[in-house]
Design a protein around this nucleic acid. Structure first.
Lengths: 274, 274
DNA sequence: CATTAAATATCGGTT
DNA sequence: AACCGATGTTTAATG
């Protein structure tokens, strides 16, 4: 690929302090060209779908992705304050709107500050909608400080290690890490309660159910293991002894107590060797 | 607040196609001023901490928040491809660097394309670090298309409805929604297995444990309810009858089977009235 | 489409 | 700082 061909793919267009009409055009164009579009400015946000929420006016950063995702970020927190998952349709439009429409009746009756907003009646609206489930996100801007449309390429995939899958491989490669004589027989073995991470036998021929967790675990993981052990005990003959072993870096006190109560075991092991 | 006072707070500074040195200065200045900083360009990403990951060169959008959060977004997905939680220290620096350093030895020995990168030896590095746990995110840019620093105010809080807390209030306001004669006695009642959502009595004076979920539930919620019923049965006298009732919009088939197996009940109820 | 469980889950509250 | 449970969890795997 030549340098000029790359330039055709990789570019960024930015408007600073645009009029709402200009911002609207730039956003619509960015969505059309399947760019990653960002908008920064003063806005209100409404969401309705699995739950519903409202957010009063504030300065926020909105990102619209070409796959249909939408993210509204404040200056705090890792998570967006509002969002929409991939698969949504983004729309943008500019309209005349009663500036008092967003305000509560209480503010209206309080009066006094109404004159400040009466001059600004134009509103830029971003709307992201999807179905199954029906969900709608509405972002209304009174003021846009910046609009950008980014185009680029990203063919790479994340290479991640330290996952539960790494822990599984580590144990399958070296079963003695569980205990001497352990023999794995199956992974993802199905039971009425779900799939067992590792199913095997100890050196005395007893059935072993292994539940893997990549990090320190609480009571939930113990319950999960218990479900599997119970289900397998019913699936097999009633006189079969089934051992349940939780494998994780560590357990909480409450989880340890639950393990003891239910006759389950714990082995400390990390996803990757130190 | 006057209009001019607002302007002092609300502004955005943007550089397009900056040199890496200029980008570095702008980013450092934005971090200093506690602005929300964004960078778009071609970069590699490395993470090491609770797990570890690498991401080869691609065009991505990076956001640095003044609370220490960092987000790396591609053009796909709701979630960032890499991130760092709030509380990190952001650093930025520009350095001469062997352009082949990012490439694998295999690429080196393959040769041929090395000449394309030999001319670009300057690298802009973003580094976000925290402790407890020790975690580090490294973003290395070969090319920056845009840098922005956003300042604004956001004093508002999200108003969210349709949560588990709404469901709890609905049931406390109208206990008959569970069943006629139900009397709530406590919320968050503590047991050895954790806190019970609602603890009460039925019209026959039997103890009732209620577990609430705002949406359709699977086996996990049944296990949770079962833990609470068991724990309460041990806390109270052995001859006490304890009913366990799961309240949610709906249950999966497998969860329904588990409820029946363990003598637990289910009542369909949504967080908010239709 | 529903079901199931993992995740660098994140986030808030409490101890 | 550890622990615990909710989340508009999101995401991927699987039937």
């Amino acid at each position: 690929m030549t340098h000029s061909q790359q330039d055709q793919e990789l570019h960024a267009v930015t408007l600073e302090q645009p009029t709402l009409a200009a911002a609207c055009d730039a956003i619509a164009d960015g969505i059309d060209r399947e760019a990653l579009v960002t908008v920064f400015g003063r806005c209100t946000v409404e969401y309705d779908g699995r739950a519903s929420s409202t957010l009063d006016a504030g300065d926020r950063h909105v990102m619209l992705k070409p796959d249909g995702a939408a993210l509204v970020h404040t200056d705090e927190g890792q998570q967006p304050v509002n969002w929409q998952p991939p698969g949504c349709d983004h729309e943008v439009f500019c309209e005349q709107r009663d500036a008092d429409a967003d305000r509560s009746d209480a503010a209206e009756t309080a009066g006094g500050t109404a004159t400040e907003t009466e001059t600004e009646t134009e509103i830029l609206t971003l709307e992201s909608v999807r179905s199954t489930p029906d969900e709608r996100l509405l972002v209304r801007f009174r003021n846009v400080l910046q609009v950008s449309a980014f185009s680029g390429t990203d063919e790479t995939e994340l290479a991640l290690s330290g996952t539960e899958e790494d822990l599984r491989q580590r144990l399958l490669d070296e079963p003695d890490l569980l205990e001497p004589g352990f023999t794995p027989l199956a992974t993802e073995r199905d039971t009425a309660a779900g799939a067992i991470d590792i199913y095997g036998e100890d050196d005395a021929g007893r059935t072993v159910v292994v539940e893997l967790k990549r990090r320190r675990v609480g009571p939930d993981a113990v319950s999960q293991l218990r479900r599997y052990v119970d289900a397998l005990g019913r699936d097999l003959h009633a006189d079969t002894t089934v051992r349940g072993i939780l494998v994780a870096p560590s357990v909480t006190d409450r989880a340890k107590r639950l393990l003891t109560e239910h006759g389950l075991e714990f082995i400390s092991l990390e996803p990757t060797a130190a």
